[in-house]
Every structure is written in structure tokens, then in C-alpha cells.
């Protein structure tokens, strides 16, 4: 299977080698969990390691902010744009939705000019402002995702979770439309906030089922080990597993 690596070694391992080519991949998390950082890293590593130009389509944050944030990780997005390997496009869900359906639109034009292979949509949550009707919304997201696939783009779609700790109460259907679904969560352990990453779904491929810790370091996202001896991670307030359970299943390994 043709894999598109994120360039984050442990995450690629969790994904069975990377995302599948021409797929739409949802990354959901609360503010500050690193969704956009993960997206930027996916684009940067694609350009630098796999020679795959990329697009970032933003519906809210100004491109100027991405240049600034990327520079903090040592990623020269301004330089990559000058070389024609990256474009950070600011637009709206309504324009991008109309554009992807049109022949010779802006996104199609960028894909042709740059030979772009990757795209980050930041964030797909903004499609919710196009309609109040959940069925219509699912249809619009489906159109848009199919348009990206038609253009040969492997995408990361970020999605905002309104809940800081614990499971999201959002009842959007987009999880059904995408090919893979990653969750980034805050977890409170012993009075400290840590971050957890899970690959919830990956269509057409095996993937890791465990919940990993990760950090946002000066180099970007770094995925680490699992949460040893903890259960109920996704609740946001995990509890230590019963000692006997730990004795039986964890300490043995």
C-alpha cells in the first residue's frame, strides 16, 4: 500500500506506516492540543523529506500566524512559499466548497502549478457555519473531501473539540466521511496536564489501538510511550489500574 508519512516516526508506526495516499484524515482536539502543529509538520516533512509540495487552507487563522509559528520550530514557510513548494491560502468554507466543485478553480490551479500532493484544512469545523441541517452539512463535507481526493491530495482535516478534558459531546457526522480519525486529548494525571493521542479509525489498514502520550517540543510533535498503569484516559481523568491488574498484565512485560 502506498503510504504518506507524516514524518513523525512514532505516529507513522501507529498508522501502520503512514496515511494511505489520497485519503482524508481527521485530527480532532481541543484548543492547544497541537492539531495545527501536526498539520504543519505533515506539510513540512512532506516537502523536506518526500519532495511533496503542500497546501494549507485556513478558514480563520491568518497565514501570517502560520509563518510565525512555523519559524518557532525552525520551519521556513516563507522560504518554501518563495520556492513554490508551499502555499498558505486564507479563504472561507463557502468559497472553498464552491471552488473545489468548479472546473479550473483556485485549488485545482495550485495543485497543477505546484504539483501539490498534501493539504491541511484548518479547520473543517468551520463548515458548520454553512448550514444548520446536519444532513446537508455531511453532504457538503463529503463533496469537499471527494474534491480533494480527485485532485490527488492526501489531506489532514483539523477539527475543534469544544471540550478541554474528557470526551467530546459534538455529534457531527464527519467521522463517518473520513478515512482515518485521530484524537488529541488533554489528560489530567496526578495534578498535571498531559497530552494523549489515539488513532480511533483507519479505513483499509491496521493501526495501533493504544493511547500514546505526546509533547509539543521545539521540533514539533513528538509521540512517546503509552500511559502505563492508567485506564480511562479518554475520560480526561484517568485512574490508576488496580494493583492486581497491573501485577497480572503490566509488570509481567
Amino acid at each position: 500500500m502506498d503510504r504518506i508519512k507524516t514524518g513523525i516516526t512514532s505516529l507513522d508506526e501507529m498508522l501502520g506506516g503512514g496515511f494511505l495516499r489520497d485519503t482524508a484524515n481527521l485530527v480532532e482536539g481541543a484548543p492547544g492540543t497541537g492539531k495545527t502543529t501536526l498539520g504543519m509538520q505533515f506539510i513540512y516533512n512532506g516537502i523536506m523529506k518526500d519532495n511533496e509540495p503542500g497546501l494549507i487552507i485556513t478558514f480563520e487563522e491568518f497565514p501570517k500566524q502560520y509563518y510565525h509559528d512555523a519559524a518557532a520550530f525552525g520551519w521556513d514557510f516563507v522560504g518554501l512559499e518563495k520556492k513554490g513548494l508551499l502555499k498558505i491560502v486564507m479563504t472561507s468554507p463557502e468559497v472553498s466548497h464552491m471552488d473545489i466543485k468548479s472546473v479550473g478553480g483556485m485549488i485545482e490551479g495550485y495543485v497543477d502549478q505546484m504539483d501539490a500532493r498534501r493539504v491541511v484544512i484548518d479547520s473543517i469545523s468551520h463548515f458548520a457555519r454553512l448550514t444548520q441541517d446536519p444532513v446537508e452539512l455531511r453532504g457538503m463535507e463529503f463533496d469537499f473531501i471527494n474534491g480533494l481526493k480527485r485532485e490527488g491530495l492526501t489531506s489532514i482535516l483539523t477539527r475543534e473539540s469544544p471540550v478541554l478534558l474528557g470526551e467530546s459531546t459534538d455529534d457531527s457526522d464527519i467521522g463517518f466521511v473520513v478515512d482515518s480519525y485521530l484524537i488529541m486529548r488533554y489528560v489530567e494525571i496526578e495534578s498535571a496536564i498531559r497530552k494523549a493521542l489515539l488513532v480511533l479509525k483507519m479505513r483499509g489498514s491496521d493501526h495501533a489501538k493504544d493511547i500514546r502520550q505526546y509533547e509539543i517540543t521545539e521540533y514539533g510533535i513528538e509521540v512517546q510511550s503509552t500511559f502505563e498503569g492508567q485506564e480511562g484516559i479518554l475520560s480526561g481523568s484517568p485512574r490508576r489500574m488496580a494493583d492486581s491488574f497491573v501485577e497480572a498484565f503490566v509488570k509481567k512485560n
Partner: peptide, 9 residues
């Protein structure tokens, strides 16, 4: 100038 690839209504 700061956000050169903006395209919108």
C-alpha cells in the same frame, strides 16, 4: 501583503 494567498468574498 502579509497574507498573500487570501482569496475570499
Amino acid at each position: 501583503h502579509e497574507n498573500p494567498h487570501t482569496a475570499d468574498t
